[in-house]
Computed example of a mutant assay.
Amino acid sequence: MQGEPMQGEPMRRCVSPDSAALADAVRALRDGQVIACPTEAVWGISCDPHSDAAVARLLRLKARDPAKGLIVVAACMDQLAPWLDGLDYALYAPLRASWPGPVTWLVPDNGFAPALVRGDHTSVALRVTDHPGMQALCEAFGGPLVSTSANRAGEPPAMSAADARALFGEALGAVVPGELGEYPRPSQIRDLASGRVLRR
Score class of each variant (00 low, 15 high):
E4M: 10
E9Q: 11
P10T: 01
A21K: 01
A21C: 11
A21S: 13
P38G: 12
I45Y: 00
H50A: 12
A53W: 09
A54Y: 01
V55D: 00
L58Q: 05
L59V: 01
K62N: 12
R64S: 07
P66H: 12
K68T: 15
L70Y: 05
I71F: 06
A75I: 00
C76F: 06
C76I: 02
C76D: 15
L84F: 04
A90L: 15
W99I: 01
P100Y: 07
L106N: 08
V107N: 02
V107R: 02
P108G: 10
A113M: 07
V117T: 04
D120F: 04
T122A: 13
S123W: 09
R127F: 08
L137W: 05
C138H: 12
G142Q: 10
G143N: 05
V146C: 07
T148H: 07
T148Y: 04
A153D: 10
P156Q: 04
A158M: 02
S160T: 12
A161G: 12
R165W: 10
A166T: 06
F168N: 01
L172F: 10
A174V: 12
P177S: 13
L180P: 03
P184L: 04
P186S: 12
S187P: 11
S187W: 09
I189R: 05
G195S: 08
R196Y: 00
L198M: 09
R199Q: 07
